[in-house]
């Protein structure tokens, strides 16, 4: 369980209380500036809260040594920047850093899970956007973390690659990891998340299954858009008025 208790961070997050469960996909939604990335980074242990705290399986996250925290929480930022043109395998191996080992098995497993085995010896900067996104996720998986925290992992991808990456994330959740995604596309959150957290101006507005967290009233209140869902469960589309 990864939980925030009265988490406050500057004026970006105000008294946020939520408890995330492993084995499911949780989406964090909200308009620009709502504090989504801030919440994700705080839960990854990268930002010091001004008040409140974060609990990981009952213990305080910020009391954990950084290496221990890094073993349990994998963080994937929005930026797909790779500074040096290293081979794909070397990049994925960075995920083993918190463990301090060079084990080939988890790295191979991560490469295989994301269908990257044929790319292992390619140079990182020769990859397309979709391939890079998969390599960066493989880097997180190689660390075998209990939690995968990803900031808008679908942002730079086309529809096919978005669905592809969601399929891989679902597989990780099915294997027991807690998957937490900042998502802008509400239809993805509605159709692919098991639970949705809605933030508005730093405050928690909803924390519920997608059907109730992203109902018409909340969308109007938070995004200021009159819209409604059409289609059957799992294949819904948002239609604006």
């Amino acid at each position: 369980m990864l939980a925030t208790k009265d988490l406050t961070l500057g004026n970006r997050l105000k008294d946020v209380n939520c408890a995330l469960k492993p084995g499911i996909i949780t989406a964090i939604c909200g308009p620009n500036g709502a504090g989504k990335s801030t919440l994700l980074q705080a839960m990854a242990g990268l930002l010091d809260p001004d008040a409140g705290h974060i609990e990981l399986d009952g213990g305080r996250l910020y009391d954990l040594p950084p290496k221990e925290r890094a073993k349990r929480i994998g963080y994937l930022p929005q930026s797909a920047e790779v500074a040096w043109d290293v081979p794909v395998r070397t990049l994925v191996q960075l995920g083993r850093m918190p463990h301090g080992d060079q084990l080939a098995e988890p790295v191979d497993a991560a490469l295989a899970a994301l269908d990257l085995a044929p790319f292992a010896d390619r140079r990182a900067q020769s990859l397309s956007g979709g391939e890079t996104a998969r390599v960066l996720l493989a880097r997180v998986l190689a660390g075998e973390p209990d939690w995968i925290l990803a900031d808008e992992p679908l942002a730079a991808l086309d529809l096919g690659h978005q669905l592809d990456l969601l399929r891989h994330l679902r597989r990780a959740a099915d294997a027991g990891a807690g998957v937490v995604l900042v998502l802008h596309d509400l239809a993805h959150a509605m159709n692919h998340a098991d639970r949705v957290i809605v933030l508005d101006r730093g405050a928690l507005v909803a924390d519920a299954p997608p059907e109730s967290a992203l109902d018409d009233v909340t969308i109007l209140d938070v995004w200021g858009v009159a819209a409604g869902w059409v289609g059957e469960s799992g294949k819904r589309a948002l239609v604006t008025a």
Binding site: G45, A70, P77
Partner: peptide
């Protein structure tokens, strides 16, 4: 190589 936030994570 993957940026400062990733290094810290």
């Amino acid at each position: 190589t993957l940026g400062e936030p990733v290094a810290r994570s």
